[in-house]
Computed example of a mutant assay.
Amino acid sequence: MIRIIIAEDQKMLRGAFASLLRFEDDIEVVAEVPDGEQAWEAIRHHQPDICLLDIEMPGINGLELAENIRHAGLPCKIMIVTTFARPGYLQKAMNAQVEGYLLKDEPIDFLIEAIRRVMKGERVVSTDLAAALFMKGENPLSEREIEMLRLTKEGMTTGEISKALFLTTGTVRNYLSSAIQKLEADSRQQAAAIAEDKGWL
């Protein structure tokens, strides 16, 4: 029996997943939860075979939860479901060594087959998501530029970044200007958003 926990914040979708999976003789849904915190508690309590995690959840999101599971050394396999074909998300999921990464609009038969394949030790990624990863391109940013954009994403001003990194404000502006040009962005905030979406931050 494959024991599964479903973590999905959309109640209707969570219920649909659970109902459809319960029709399968070899699958048992041991818990269904609406957010990352409850998922983390349920995973530690039930010790499931597979965690089916939504990527966008309140509190702890699916990717952060995957990292928590890996850091804790828990043996359960991780399958991420998402509506977003973002290469940045997929890259982070691959870094967390998830076993499955599926789009929510896949047929239910694909999900069920993916669950069984993951239990056999395979990795399953939706075709459109794999294509997004392949198309993400090379990272043109330097380590310093990445650092600047990461701090920008955290809401720091140019002055705050210069103090944090012991650099002049002119140097910080030069790095940010270079990153903005490389990413063909209109602002440092937009450059940070582009870089994150591509998995470079």
Rank of each mutant, 00 (worst) to 15 (best):
A66W: 05
E67I: 11
E67V: 13
E67T: 14
H71D: 14
A72G: 10
L74F: 09
L74I: 14
L74T: 14
P75M: 07
P75H: 12
I78T: 09
I78D: 10
M79F: 09
I80V: 14
V81H: 15
V81T: 15
V81K: 05
T82Q: 01
T82H: 03
T83S: 13
F84K: 02
A85W: 04
A85T: 15
A85E: 15
R86Q: 11
R86T: 07
R86W: 02
P87E: 10
L90R: 01
L90Y: 10
Q91E: 13
K92D: 15
K92C: 00
A93D: 08
M94A: 08
N95P: 02
Q97N: 11
V98R: 02
E99G: 07
E99I: 04
G100T: 13
G100N: 09
L103C: 13
K104P: 01
D105R: 01
D105P: 00
D105L: 02
E106Y: 11
P107Q: 08
I108N: 05
I108P: 03
D109A: 11
L111R: 07
L111A: 10
I112P: 02
E113I: 05
E113T: 14
A114K: 03
R116S: 01
R116F: 01
V118K: 09
M119H: 12
M119Y: 10
K120Q: 01
G121E: 12
G121T: 12
G121S: 13
E122P: 00
E122K: 05
V125Q: 07
T127W: 11
D128A: 14
L129T: 07
L129E: 10
A130Q: 15
A130N: 11
A131S: 01
A132R: 03
L133N: 06
F134N: 08
F134A: 14
M135W: 10
K136P: 02
G137D: 04
E138V: 03
E138C: 00
N139C: 11
N139R: 01
N139M: 03
P140H: 09
L141E: 09
S142I: 06
S142W: 04
S142D: 13
S142V: 08
S142Q: 12
R144M: 11
I146A: 13
I146Q: 15
E147R: 13
E147H: 12
E147P: 05
M148T: 08
L149P: 01
L149H: 01
R150V: 10
R150T: 15
R150K: 14
L151D: 14
L151Y: 12
T152W: 04
T152I: 13
K153D: 15
G155S: 07
M156N: 09
M156E: 11
T157Q: 03
T157S: 14
G159Q: 05
G159F: 04
I161P: 05
I161E: 03
I161K: 00
S162W: 01
S162I: 03
K163M: 00
A164W: 00
L165D: 11
F166I: 09
L167R: 08
T168M: 04
T168W: 00
T168S: 14
T168A: 05
T169A: 06
T169Q: 11
T169V: 08
T169K: 05
G170L: 04
G170D: 15
G170P: 00
N174E: 14
Y175V: 07
Y175L: 06
S177T: 13
S177I: 05
S178R: 09
S178F: 05
A179Y: 11
I180E: 12
I180H: 04
Q181E: 15
Q181R: 10
